[in-house]
Amino acid sequence: MTAFRALTGHEKIKKSLTGAIVSNRVSHAYLFYGPPGVGKRTAGMAFARALLCSGGGGDACEVCDECSRSKQGVHPDLHLIRPDGASIKIRQLRELCDGAVFTSFSEGRQVFLVEQADRMTTEAANSFLKTLEEPMTGVVFILITDELTGIPPTVLSRCLCYRFNNLSRADVTKVIMQEAGSAELAHTMAVLSGGSPGRALALLGGSAGRDRALEMALSLAVNSRSAMPVPPEEISGREGAQEFVNYLTVLFRDVMVVQQTGLGELLINIDRQDDIAVLAGAYDRREVLDILLTAEETARRLAGNVNQRLALDSLLLKIAGF
């Protein structure tokens, strides 16, 4: 449970939302959309808390009763709706929207935060629309979704839509710094995540995979063609294999960058510059491009349920120089 001022990035959106509260031009329905893991839910919660705050300053003051209740997640006028199983059923909406619910406990607003709004069934979406058509005082819906295409156009046209973008590398680094420990690791994960702090945090959890991939590549490069390459034992299951291939891809992308430009600052694995240099010396440009294309194909095959060991073999053989 946070507030706008603690949220990293999305400056324009924050400004717009706080401005709306301050100037009392709050609409009934909002839609937050964009790539996963960039802070939509956090922003939605911050907005909800700001709406309920009795200070009216545009952001949760953290002092008033409302803010302390919403912080603890026990505010009676703040309703969270999540998919029940695969979808958000109409029943869930009706339970909350019917009857007495429209009288707020604190004579102020009522906020409904709907996560994964693309999972609403058609009936649920229609009932949501009907609710919007009725006169309601103080009710605000905040829909959140990763998949804009899953939202019916009729719903879209009734909501104020805010697009959340990927964060800049600096911002992601800032968010995950504490978790990462070192500035370099934070940088690497920030770049790898493609601008999503959520993804970066997830990647941090699996950084051992990156080391494994690097070790494998180095040993193959150095002892090229000496023996049949074998993927590390720890790799199990499709996800493990995919992660392995992904790390190899990024490694050899760094090798390509070094070979083509010599610019160290463009590296993703910036904390492994020396190892990358070793690899760059062991292959020529054409081989590296070849390896990258093979890796792409391997990733595609793995996604298609192919024999995992065979798929990995073809890539490792390429790297080993066969």
Binding site: G194, N246, L289, E296, A299
Partner: peptide, 22 residues
């Protein structure tokens, strides 16, 4: 669209374009 590293895919394509070779 399907890749876990769209950035790498794009970079490889651009390098191949410039290289002209292959």
């Amino acid at each position: 669209r399907r890749s876990a590293h769209p950035r790498v895919v794009l970079e490889v394509a651009l390098v191949r374009f410039i290289d002209g070779g292959g």
